[in-house]
Amino acid sequence: MSNIDKATVAKIARLARIKIEEDKLEPLAGELNNILDWVEQLSEVNTDNIEPMSSVVDAKLRWREDTVDDGDKQDSVLKNAPNAEYGFFAVPKVIE
C-alpha cells in the first residue's frame, strides 16, 4: 500500500516545478495513492532474471557523420520566445 502524504505531494511537485495550491495537496495525495495502489499489483509478477525493456526497437544506435549541417538560425530559435533581448533568451533573474 502506498502512502503518499501531503508532504510527499509537495516534494514531488517541487521536483516537477509545478505549483499546487495548499488545499489541493490532500485530494491529490488521495488520487495518487489510488493510482499507485493499483499499479502495485505488479509486485505479484516474478521478474527475477528479466532484463528491463526500455525500447521495443531491437537495434543499435545509428551514428551521424561529424558534419555541421544545422544551426545558424538565431531567428528561428528565438522566434517563439516569450522574451528575447539582444539575441539572448531573457528569463527572470536567477537567484544564486
Binding site: 551521424r64 561529424d66 558534419t67 555541421v68 549541417d69 544545422d70 544551426g71 545558424d72 538560425k73 538565431q74 528561428s76 530559435v77 528565438l78 539582444y86 539575441g87 539572448f88 533568451f89
Partner: peptide, 27 residues
C-alpha cells in the same frame, strides 16, 4: 573535439553570436 554537437548538427566553434550555433534540437 568535434565539428558538430553530440546530438545535433550545429557547430561547436567558439565566439559566435548568442544562440547562433543552436539547432532546434539544442533548443
Amino acid at each position: 573535439i568535434s565539428n558538430a554537437k553530440l546530438f545535433s548538427g550545429a557547430s561547436t566553434e567558439f565566439g559566435a553570436e548568442p544562440n547562433a550555433q543552436v539547432s532546434l534540437v539544442d533548443a
